[in-house]
């Protein structure tokens, strides 16, 4: 669970940390729109370059961003495979006959075993995976021998490659942008910013203050509840409910043994919180003051200018 980086603030003091959250939120949304306006791979590459420069300038740890991308590897890979396999536009880059025979299947199994063995060292895992894919390709193309069972045609078009690159880079930019926002903004600031931005919606009945309060309380209690879940898991594990070992039938009961105390503790906690808030004179819906008021400064101006420039740039390349 420690890999989930969305919503994980890292303390720091660079430029991004001192921008008003409202500016940051709007800037990220505008930059995302600008990214979607881009149409060719060169344009998104330039966009990616700009995003990289901003990250380096803001001294955001790139390692953290890469870590945050981990859950999205599957999505990125799927995009790649889908685009390469089904895009039939442009000129043919590769046209090879793939052969499947008992031998090639044996070789493929061997390759898989080697790949898993090497992967257990946990270094260059992505590179290894590509090496594995290339290996599979090579086996199916050249190492089939007789008796052949079946063959299939692998055709890759250049537009397929370009499109997959385009889609992936576009996704990368968007994820990077939102990760930078959440890495450099405290969740409380983020909700405060959202509350401030959503205030006009009061006219149509949406109370942004309640909304912001709900979000900030939820965020505040995520680590607490994770911690609690861990303790419950330990307590049940010491009664033999091992969540790693054990049969499937037992696991159902074990999950219940985790969920019931979780719910009870969460309900109790929320009641206590409500009491604690009321005993400190919290009245729902009444206006409140804040310790930190949001203020606009020169950094917000710079951010706004850069954002507007980026948007103008992408509109320009779209129109021209």
């Amino acid at each position: 669970m420690k890999n989930v980086i969305i919503g994980q603030y890292i303390p720091g003091s660079s430029f991004f940390y001192h921008i008003d959250p409202r500016t940051k939120i709007i800037a990220v949304v505008v930059l995302m729109v600008a990214t979607f306006l881009l149409e060719t791979i060169w344009q998104v590459l330039i966009g990616f370059g700009i995003a990289l420069i901003l990250i380096i300038a803001g001294r955001v740890p790139i390692r953290k961003i890469v870590k945050g991308l981990k859950p999205l590897y599957v999505l990125l890979l799927f995009t790649l495979v889908f685009q390469i396999a089904f895009n039939r536009v442009g000129t043919i880059v590769l046209d090879a006959t793939m052969q499947i025979s008992p031998f090639s299947i044996l070789f493929m199994i061997a390759a898989t075993i080697i790949w898993r063995l090497l992967a257990s060292f946990k270094k260059f895992s992505l590179l290894l995976f590509f090496a594995y894919l290339v290996g599979l390709f090579f086996i199916m193309k050249n190492l089939a021998f007789s008796p052949l069972w079946t063959t299939w045609q692998l055709t890759i078009y250049d537009q397929g490659l370009i499109m997959s690159g385009f889609v992936i880079i576009r996704l990368l930019i968007i994820i990077t942008l939102s990760t930078v926002l959440t890495l450099t903004t405290k969740p409380t600031e983020l909700t405060q910013g959202l509350e401030s931005l959503l205030r006009p919606l009061k006219a149509i009945g949406l109370n942004s203050e309640d909304f912001a309060l709900i979000i900030s309380i939820s965020l505040r209690y995520i680590p607490t509840i994770l911690d609690e879940a861990n303790k419950i898991m330990n307590a049940q594990a010491s009664r033999g409910a091992d969540f790693a070992e054990g049969r499937l039938k037992d696991k159902v009961v074990q999950v219940i043994s985790l969920l019931v105390p979780m719910f009870i503790i969460a309900f109790k906690r929320s009641e206590e919180l409500a009491d604690a808030m009321e005993s400190r004179n919290f009245v729902p819906g009444k206006p409140r003051t804040r310790i930190h008021d949001l203020k606009f400064n020169y950094r917000d101006l710079i951010t706004t200018v850069i954002t507007v420039l980026c948007l103008a740039g992408s509109i320009l390349v779209k129109v021209l």
Partner: peptide
């Protein structure tokens, strides 16, 4: 190693009963 059988031999009672009662 069967960690589970270790936990049968060594019984650990946690501080708060709320963490383990569920039935």
């Amino acid at each position: 190693i069967k960690y589970n059988s270790i936990r049968q031999q060594i019984g650990l009672v946690f501080q708060f009963p709320e963490y383990q009662l569920f039935e």
